[in-house]
Structures are given as C-alpha cells and as structure tokens.
Nucleic acid binder design. Structure first.
Lengths: 345, 345
DNA sequence: CTGAAAGCGCTTACAG
DNA sequence: CTGAAAGCGCTTACAG
C-alpha cells in the first residue's frame, strides 16, 4: 500500500516517476535521468540496476514535464479546413512525414472554414507551446498571431497567404493555373465559358477568378456577369449556379470549376444532361480519368505544398531564414477529354 | 528537433509568465491565476488591473505547465494507417469533433501499416501523456500497451480489434458485409467469383475472406484456390491477381474486392477489357455512382466508426465503462450496376 | 478577497 | 562517476 506505482484504481497519479525509480534502484534522481536519456557517465553496473527498476515499475518518462523544462515541445500544429476533404489528406501526410523526420509530433484540427474557429484552434496550439504552426487560413486577418510569432512560434501559411501580417506562405499558382485552363477551353473554340468558384473572400478563389478574366481578356472575349458565380461550394449552390448558366438563349458551352468540390458537382450536373458541355477543373481527383469523358484538370501537388511548408517551418526553427517569403508552386494541365470537347452549338 | 543548444536566444524564454503579470499588476501569483481561469473571488478593480497587465505583456497561459500540475492533458492521440487514405479522412474528422466537444486536442500520426511504427507512435503519445488513444492497428500484438492501459490511458481500437490484449474495439461487420456482397453476385447468376483482398494478417481482410467463403458455401459452390488472392493492395499486385483470374479456360465472371484501394484498381483493369465482368467492392468511394457502370459496394460508415470510438474513449475517461467490449457496426449494400451484371458466358 | 508555500516530473548547473 | 538543489510555469491546499 505504500508503493504508489501499483494502485490500479487511481487512474492518474498512479504512474511511477523518476523519483520512484531512483528509490527502488538505490541511486540519485540524476542518475536515473542519465540512464533514461542515454547520457554517458554511468557505470554498466549502475545502469543495469536502474534499468531493472525501470522495467519492474513500468516507468515511462513524462515528456510533458521534460518539455516544460527544456523549452521546445517537439510538436507542431496544423490547422486546416477539413480533415475529411480529400485535398488535405496528402497535404497532412506530407507535413507529418517532415515533422517525423525532425522528431516532432503533429497536432491538427479543422477550422471548418470558420475564421473564429481557426483562431481558437491556432491559439490553443500556441498555449500548448507547439514549436510551430502550419495554417491553411479560413480567415483573412491574422494579426491575432503577431504576439505568438514575436514570442518565437514558427509559422507558415499554406494554400492561401496570411492576411494583414507578413508571414511565410506556400501556395499554388492559382492565377496562372486558372488562366491556362481557361485558355485551353478557348483554344478548343469556346467563348461562353462559365466560372464557378469558392467564396470571393478566399484568396485562391479570387486569384482563380482573376486568371479566368485574364484568359478571356487575352482572347478579346467580353465577360458577362452571368457567367461568374462565387460562393459556398455545397452541392445545392453549385447545382443552381450551373443550371442557371446552362439555361437561357445563350447558355455557356464550357465550365471552369474553381476547386475539386465544385468540379465533382458540375460533373454530376453534366452527367444528367444530354448535350455535352466542356469542363476543366482546378485540382485533380481520384478516378478523374475513369469518368466518361475523363475530366481535364489543372492539377496542384497537395503533398508538395505540405512538404514545402513544413520544411520552411523547420528552417525557421533552425534560425536559417531571413524575411518571410511567398513560395509559389506551379500547376499542371492534365488533358483527359472533358476539356477538349468542342462547343455544342 | 534542432539541437536545443544552438537555438537562437531563448525563443520561449521571452514569453511572459503569470509571475511577470503578477509583478506588473502588483498582485500575487494566485490572483493572476484566478483571473486567467475565470475563478470567482476577485474584485472588479483587481481584475481590471490584472487584465491590463495581461494585455500589455501579451501573456498567454502555458498549458504545458498547467497540464503537468493537473494530471489530464486534454489531448488524445489517433494512430491510423495513412492520413492520405480517403477512408481515414472522415474517420479522423469524426474523432476530432468528439474530442473538440470534450475540449480536447487531437494528436495524430500514420503507422504506414508498419507495426513497429505503430508502437513507436503510440508510446510516444503515451509519453506525452495523452488522456486516451484511438488506434487503427497495423500490428497484431498490442501487449506493449498493457502498462499504459493499467496506468490509466484510455484506449479504443477502431476498424480492427486489438491483438493479444483485451480492449475496446469498434469495427464494421466485415464478415456479414462480405457475405452479403458475394451472395448478391451469386443471386445474379455468378458461380466463378474472384476475391482480391488485403494481406491475410489484417483482421478485416481475413474476416471478409471468411464472409466470401460462407456465401459460397451457403450456395453450395466449391471454391477454387485460384479464385482467392490476398496480399498488398498496391496496384501492381492487384492488377496481376485480377489478370490471372480473368485468364485461362474458366475465368471468373465477377469480382469481390476487399477494400476501396482494391476496388479502384479492379475498376481500372475492367475498364481496359471488352467483356463485362461484375464487381462488388467493400467500402464506398466518391464518384462510384458516376462510373459506367456505377460500382456496387458494401458501404461502411467511416465517420460513424470514428465517432463511436471517440465516444467510448471519453466514456472510459469518465469511468462509466465496465469491461472492454467489441462494437460491430452494420454495413449496407448499395447497388449501382456493376454488381448486377450477369455472367458473361 | 488575497497570497505565500509546496509540488507536478522532469532538466540544468554545479559540487563532490 | 554520482547526486543535492534549484527551477521550468503553472495549480493545489491552506492561511490570513
């Protein structure tokens, strides 16, 4: 009953500590610390005695306590929009692999595209004293992070740049990718091209719209307001937008879809219609090549985004970076059929 | 992590602590603690003074220190196979939502299907003193967790049960789902049905094979060894297995695919062949309905698996659970065309 | 209403 | 080679 290490009913507080190990092994606390951390300067015999006590007690070092003393937590935070979105899976995995290579764990959470929730999460991670933060921003004002960054929290934004603060960012070339995709449709004879994208306050959505406008302007095609729809990417809204653009005397003959959620819904809409309509989507997705026709996309490399961002984060922590910088990764047009359909009329 | 010795001038030494706030506000440490935690018993005037000091200093409570003192860390760990696999996205998100509702953060990592890496990750999470662990096991021996569980770490296994220890598990009805899916093919006239699944040491793979055998036995169809292939789910292996079953004088006329990775590859193989072959896959996937034919699947609810597991985890932490238990969630057959094709010969 | 002291489980800095 | 003391930033238990 004296031994605190074997009280099965007291769930917490029942774990043996270094002090318990030291007592059992008949050595000092510091000697246990040396053995646990593989530090030199312990005789083989002492080490054996300590190890025996560790095994007997089932001791496992409390990294929470260690972290408090050492300063760095060897963990980084990842705030993204939605863990369930297939675009973020490879991105998260890439961040995790880089973290792992640096011996750090990954704490992550979804903002659900809610700026308040993004802030709440990011600050909770700062309170846990993560060493760094990789953020896919939902909001457009990140001044709330200034004190944290000043206090030493490494920070990199991915997919979208930070708002109102100067910070590292790694993004895809949304403008160029969209311009190329729309130019591709124009090259195949389309003039009435619809653009359906995410909400306009999202940086990538605005950039892709800008790319659309640029391609149309380059071709000398005046753009009609009815051809552009920005808003939430839920299927209902996208369906409505697509249906509107396809109705009337002068329907669009092609769509450019602003992200993978939109593309998938547009594919569904088009599959229900007899007349073929061309489509190019931003973001690649699984099975895009097996649909009929295959879906032509402007692909971005989600894993590369995550990897690059995480690498910059650890460079910041190593103190080898100068000023914040924006890294822009190229996109790639993949033709599969849907973007090469001629105009229906 | 980077060598702590060469970190640039105490990044974290620069953060203000409660003591700094107390000094600046001219109050005691405990009074600051009261204000920070919203505890009662502080006069409005004192509270104002403390709050002013907090704002001026940019103080943020160090939850690492708090956790050390309080016992619970308000964080849970999730060990899964691969964050990038679309099956785990909704599962992770569901776990996260339950954790969030309980005020806990989620630390997660991928085992990459490697038992050693699973153990390394799980134990690293225990060293961080997560309150609980949700594990999608890669290995089949979890005795390494016994001391942790005894010490009070709540543990729930998902998708696959634990090996060699008695622990809570939440799984889909792999046996029943596979049996139903194969019976569906038999009902549509098939007798030569191929089964391609994951490696046989994975519990779900073995259970689904058992379901296949049961359906065949129920129909009085003798099963040939050449009709069953278990192994890695990389495209090359699955392609080879499918091609073999489709060759020879008596090719299979239908496939049952053991999981979504296999299904996708089989769809690709079949799309390259002229003769229609029936297919039912375990696991639903996006766009399955838009392929031609639509892919008939035995669907499991990944989000529900995650939600149920996380709920049980917090029930364990609340001490309201008795003995470990296995929860089996039902599957659902969704017919879309590929499973209703008649035999080709 | 307020605060000084002890302690959570480790590491650091130092002395023997 | 070994260990006692101090301290990381909080909360707990207690006293005024």
């Amino acid at each position: 009953m004296a031994d605190p290490a074997r009280r099965p009913d007291n769930r917490y507080g029942s774990r043996p500590t270094m002090k318990d190990v030291a007592t059992r092994a008949g050595v000092g606390l510091k000697t246990v610390s040396r053995v646990v951390n593989g530090e030199p300067g312990v005789t083989p015999d002492t080490e054996r005695r300590v190890q025996a006590a560790i095994d007997a007690l089932g001791f496992r070092r409390n990294d929470s306590a260690r972290v408090l003393r050492k300063g760095r937590t060897a963990s980084i935070g990842l705030v993204l929009e939605d863990l369930a979105d297939p675009f973020y899976g490879p991105l998260s995995r890439a961040v995790e692999e880089v973290a792992r290579a640096h011996g750090a764990l990954l704490i992550n959470g979804s903002s659900a595209e809610d700026p308040d929730r993004e802030q709440e999460l990011a600050l909770a991670l700062c309170a846990r004293r993560v060493d760094g933060l990789v953020i896919i921003p939902a909001g457009d004002d990140h001044r709330y992070l200034e004190p944290e960054i000043k206090a030493g929290v490494a920070t990199v934004f991915v997919d979208r740049p930070a708002g109102k603060i100067d910070a590292d960012a790694v993004v895809s070339d949304s403008f160029g990718g969209a311009r190329d995709g729309v130019a591709h449709l124009i090259a195949h004879g389309h003039r009435r091209i619809g653009f359906i994208g995410d909400r306009p306050n999202i940086h990538t959505a605005a950039e892709r719209l800008r790319g659309y406008r640029a391609a149309m302007a380059d071709a000398g095609i005046p753009v009609q307001d009815a051809w552009m729809s920005l808003g939430a990417t839920d299927p209902e809204r996208v369906r409505r937008a697509a249906a509107e653009m396809l109705s009337g005397p002068e329907p669009v003959t092609a769509f450019f879809a602003g992200n993978n959620r939109v593309t998938v819904t547009v594919v569904r809409v088009l599959s229900e219609r007899p007349r073929p309509v061309a489509l190019v989507g931003f973001d690649d997705f699984e099975l895009a090549d097996l649909l009929q026709p295959g879906v032509t996309v402007v692909a971005q490399d989600a894993a590369q985004l995550g990897r690059t961002a995480a690498q910059r984060l650890f460079q910041q922590l190593d103190g080898v970076l100068a000023a914040p910088e924006r890294t822009v990764l190229p996109t790639r047009l993949i033709t599969r059929g849907s973007g090469e359909l001629p105009p229906a009329d």
